[in-house]
């Protein structure tokens, strides 16, 4: 019975490690093939992030409990930090023109930032949260 659980855990670890590595690779492919910074950021925040999470969960199934806790802690930190980094880099990328406008079908932020006569549409918005 115990041996069966052991085998099942090892199989689950193998599947999770391989799937995670595949998603990491797909994130790398996205990083190379996508046309601008923000789409590359999407590849990083989605595919690569999921790949790392799967690998961490897979590793956590194999190691003794204290180390499993640490690995899951890395996963939790990853879930918190990746969106924050994505927002910081994405915001700067959009404002410094690192977004290829021709890839966008709709751009509602340009309408918001564009009109200079609008009362509070500029860079000055003091209440603009940045997550830091």
């Amino acid at each position: 019975m115990n041996g069966l659980v052991q085998t099942a855990l090892e199989a689950a670890t193998a599947v999770l490690l391989l799937c995670g590595a595949v998603f990491c690779l797909l994130g790398g492919v996205g990083l190379v093939r996508f046309p601008d910074t923000v789409t590359r950021l999407q590849a990083a925040a989605k595919a690569q992030n999921l790949g790392l999470l799967l690998i961490l969960i897979g590793a956590a199934l194999r190691v003794p409990l204290p180390y499993a806790g640490l690995l899951l802690l890395i996963a939790v930190f990853q879930l918190i930090t990746v969106p924050v980094l994505g927002q910081i880099v994405g915001r700067i990328a959009y404002r410094t023109g690192a977004v290829e406008r021709h890839t966008l079908t709709v751009d509602e932020l340009a309408e918001r930032l564009a009109p200079p006569d609008a009362p509070d549409a500029g860079e000055s918005g003091g209440g603009r949260g940045r997550g830091t």
Binding site: V38, L41, Q42, A45, K46, P83, G86, Q87, G90, R91, Y94, L109, R112, D120, G125, G127, R128, G129, R130, G131
Partner: peptide, 11 residues
């Protein structure tokens, strides 16, 4: 989902 937050307009 398939979105990444770029800008947060708090006000």
């Amino acid at each position: 989902p398939g979105t990444l937050v770029l800008e947060i307009d708090r006000d």
